[in-house]
Amino acid sequence: MFKFRNTVLILAALFSSATVLAQSTKYPGVGRDATPKEVAAWDIDVRPDFKGLPVGSGSVAKGQDVWEAKCAHCHGIFGESNEVFSPLIGGTTAEDIKNGRVANLTRTDYPGRTTIMKVATVSTLWDYINRAMPWTNPKTLTTEEVYAVTGFLLNLAGIVPDNYVLSDKNIAEVQNRMPNRNGMTTAHAMWPGKEFGGVAKPDTQNVVCMKDCAPEAKVASFLPDFARNAHGNLSEQNRLVGQQKGADTTKPESAATNSGATAPAAAPPATAPAAGKAVDAKSDNKAVIAMLGKYTCTACHGIDKKIVGPGFNEIAKKYPGKVDYLAGKIKAGGAGVWGPIPMPAQNLSDGDAKTIATWIANGAPK
């Protein structure tokens, strides 16, 4: 019995010690220090001196395949599209590659600035593609795919040849051919110290001030309910992707934000069965719309408006009742019917494809 009690006490002491060690030493009792593995998973940035760049390689040919499958629907086949984001490629010349300064950046009459015109370091391209692309499913590209896509972009800009294989071994050589490599300045003190060649003095001289603070501002006016919908319903004027959603301005703000008790529901009308069917149909439509979000269809298609591809209502008008055809197109993808930007093949089950196709064939109702 004594041996058992001693064993329990020893285990309790060890557990207590482990708990103390797991806690942060800087802020006792608050959280714990991150493990080396956790830090490694978070610390993925690649610097201009290529510190942090993983070992690997990827060919321009491989990059073209990845690009057409995962990138072209937003950026265009040649990185020139301006439909979703600003164009990536264009505006640079062989002379820019030779000199390291993009001449078109100094022109006031040039229509726009592409990414390859502005970016000074190839590490910036690699790092951003690695951490943020594809924008509907970031951090899903393999190391080889990131090298390959970066190489393909460089090839589109005439920086590397068609048969090039970009790798951690030769990326520094590519840096010496970036069109705007000499166009960036560090003489603005946005970084501390002189490690980047800039000045040591910071560009601001702020000091902590916690006295004579202004009292909390009080709102003296507000937008009246009758003016909330002056420009149409804001909730219907946002893209269907992203976190920013407009308020439903068809309802007064007081009604939308009121968290008090609601009035009891009225008795069901005499035509309850018919109403029930309408509710069921609406529920089915909402389920399909949720499925569109699950498969990121709404990243490129609005219900009643074009984003990258046509709106679902527009597709419904062109192919009424053609369930099998629409299901096949969803699965296989395609290009040329609605414009030059292709839709890649979609990875979903036959059943889900047919459910979405049936909804479109029936008019894509909300």
Rank of each mutant, 00 (worst) to 15 (best):
L240N: 08
N170H: 10
A332T: 12
S86T: 09
A345P: 00
D33I: 11
K211R: 14
L11I: 11
A272N: 07
R32G: 15
F312I: 11
I129H: 04
A120H: 08
R181T: 00
L154W: 01
Y325T: 05
M1V: 12
A290T: 12
A287H: 10
V323D: 01
G79D: 00
S59Y: 03
A299V: 14
Q64L: 14
F15L: 13
L326C: 01
A172H: 00
V55M: 10
A256N: 12
H231R: 15
M210V: 13
T355R: 14
V20P: 05
I44Q: 12
T204S: 11
D45E: 15
M210W: 00
A357Q: 07
K306A: 10
K306Y: 01
T106W: 09
C74H: 01
A335C: 11
V119L: 13
M117C: 07
G76T: 07
T106S: 15
I129G: 03
E314R: 15
C74E: 02
K201N: 08
V122E: 03
L105R: 05
V288W: 04
K306I: 08
W42L: 14
R239T: 14
I159C: 06
L9M: 13
K37N: 13
T7G: 14
Q175R: 11
K201W: 02
Q237M: 09
A256M: 14
D350P: 04
G321E: 06
L21P: 07
A189P: 07
P320C: 06
I360W: 06
F312G: 02
K139A: 13
N180Q: 06
V30M: 13
P48T: 08
A278V: 15
D352G: 06
I89G: 02
Y27Q: 04
K318H: 12
K294N: 01
D284M: 10
T121D: 15
A34K: 15
W126M: 03
A335V: 14
G302K: 03
D45H: 11
L166E: 05
V8F: 01
G311K: 00
D127Q: 12
M210Q: 12
G333K: 03
T124W: 12
C300V: 07
N182D: 09
K354I: 04
G56E: 06
E173Q: 10
N182Y: 05
A255H: 06
K62H: 14
L141E: 09
I307C: 12
V8Q: 09
P273Y: 00
Q175T: 04
S349H: 08
T249H: 02
N180H: 03
L326T: 04
A290S: 12
G76Y: 03
A357C: 08
D212S: 09
N170W: 01
A332D: 01
C213G: 11
G52R: 01
Y295C: 06
K218C: 05
